[in-house]
Design a protein around this nucleic acid. Structure first.
Lengths: 326, 326
DNA sequence: TCATTGCGTGAAAAAATTTCATGGAGTCTG
DNA sequence: CAGACTCCATGAAATTTTTTCACGCAATGA
């Protein structure tokens, strides 16, 4: 009836001991053999007792690998995700990793906990990690990160269109000397927003006047904007790759006695709570967090019906929220 | 040499099967008997394989039960804690629970994951939970929460002294019509800060002019401050129980054409990153997050040497950071 | 009062893990 | 380059643990 290690051993042509070892992390066994055994075991639906315990422990838990919690957008994501999972009877575990840390170092730990799914918002998912997850039957969802070289699920805001919208809006406001404050250049959020933005400008016969690197932080953006605004050919508009950088831009402008929207227009991206605060009234592209999280939860919940290697990419439209800053 | 279930069974006067069952969650066994077996097992240093697996899984992991992630102070805590734990080779798991959710519902899930320690920053720890943790050998540290009815470790900023400092500072600035914007009244952070504040005023022969309830949120505070500032006897100073409420106070004042520090002084509590932003320059009491987290990590690391029922309460001094708002 | 149901229990069967002895691949050493 | 040595993977067997099974006891309901 219930599959046993003996059956798996027979099927895989190895000893029972080998099967046991395949399921005990850290025991001495050829990785290839382990892989073969685990595959056979998966086919027969076999789990070792230890594995079953682990499954019970982690039943219904989802692991979030989050970086850059200094950006208020991500606590917001964390909060929303936690609540959404709660609503479907699941729990959220968070690995908060420092921005520069290597995700591969975390891999064993994350896999050992056997989450039913992995949601990644940190910088990058290595393909090694992705493969390891596939092998262990862990569904992976990239949130607000698109990675073309790896076959995983992804949910993101339409960053490209958002960038376009920002450009068209600024042009519509009559701005022509338009600057751009970027984040970290090898992230998809930066790349897509930047591309959409400059593409739309180009199509309208314009181009990006000046560029600064704000590193996705307040401080980074503040400095970058100060130098952009004190340069010879001062921009009359700035599109910032995320909201904290846009808020920093407003503050940097104020430092120079300039104010938005009179002296320059400023547009952000994310729509974090502070964007609506009275001292900023930031015009920004709102990411549809609730819908994004719904998608993520949907993908996770589909675990039972949809095969693991059938991956989906959801690109949800953002929305331009016009407030006072542009 | 290594203790076995047989020995435990003999010692406890039960069958081997019973020992096995005691270690499998959800199996049919008298809770009292389970408890007795677990106790004997602990004495002999026995763990079932399943339990050992669980221990490996959760080795070095600390669970953070966090509420109110909308207050940027807590993501900051989360971030700092994650990095501190990383530095000592541990990992951080976060249960993000909605502010109003019942922690007792989470208890089984949290205990099943067998974290080596539990850090709680959410509203309240029930004594049932605390007892369950003690029984399972899980060290509990309350962070920024003091609870006198439960014997657990606690690390917090000296909220009482912080409240006093705020009061004395405002008096020193010549303010006399001093208002207070509170958070949620049954939290120790609210209570201690409010008490320290009004106590210091009283000792100097003054008193709190008016009180508003900001519910620890921007929106709540904004409304409360608006009504306080449009009332007959307008305060010339406000002490807000945390920083987002203080930032809301500055914004509400601006809405009425008033500005800090000219028309009124505003002091916050926490020193979140936004407090230093140019548009606010909030004078506030800085919580020593790094030191607090060090203490927390120290308490967790002491697991091996210090007995579980020896609890410590660390109250660390905050520091008044004078910026522009008062 | 008497089924009936559900739960806890130990003995025994079944299953899994660990130990042990072995052999082969790689590596250092003379 | 041979020989000794180490390291690690491996299956058989011993050991340990889990699960099944049958039973007994208490609570529930007709």
């Amino acid at each position: 009836m219930k599959p046993t290690a003996k059956q798996v051993a027979h099927e895989a042509g190895v000893s029972i001991a080998a099967v046991s070892r395949a399921f005990s992390p850290g025991s001495s066994i050829d990785p290839l053999k382990r892989q073969r055994i685990l595959q056979v075991a998966a086919q027969l639906g076999y789990s070792s007792p230890a594995r079953r315990t682990a499954e019970v422990i982690s039943a219904g838990t989802v692991t979030l690998v989050a970086g850059d919690l200094a950006n208020p957008f991500y606590p917001l994501v964390l909060d929303t995700l936690a609540k959404a999972l709660q609503a479907v009877g699941r729990q959220l575990l968070v690995y908060a990793i420092p921005p520069q840390a290597d995700m591969d170092q975390l891999t064993p730990q994350i896999l050992a906990a056997r989450p039913s799914a992995l949601v990644v918002t940190s910088a990058s998912l290595t393909s090694g990690m992705a493969n390891a997850c596939r092998q262990h039957g862990i569904r992976v969802v990239l949130l607000n990160r698109i990675q073309r070289n790896v076959r995983v699920n992804a949910v993101a805001c339409d960053n490209h269109a958002g960038g376009r919208d920002a450009a068209l809006f600024l042009l519509g406001r009559g701005r022509r000397r338009i600057g751009f404050i970027g984040g970290i250049s090898n992230t998809s959020t930066h790349r897509d927003r930047a591309e959409g933005f400059s593409e739309a400008l180009r199509e309208s016969g314009h181009s990006v006047l000046a560029e600064g690197n704000g590193e996705f932080t307040y401080r980074g953006s503040y400095g970058a904007v100060l130098s952009l605004l004190t340069a010879k050919n001062r921009p009359d508009a700035l599109f910032c790759c995320n909201d904290i950088m846009a808020l920093a831009a407003i503050d940097a402008a104020r430092e120079l006695g300039l104010s938005a929207p009179e002296d320059l227009s400023i547009v952000g991206f994310d729509d974090i709570p502070m964007a609506g605060w009275r001292s900023y009234r930031l015009t920004t592209i709102r990411q549809p967090i609730t819908r994004m999280i719904s998608e993520v939860v949907g993908l996770i919940q589909a675990s039972n019906t949809v095969p693991l290697d059938e991956t989906t990419t959801s690109i949800l439209p953002g929305k331009l929220i016009v407030r006072g800053s542009a």
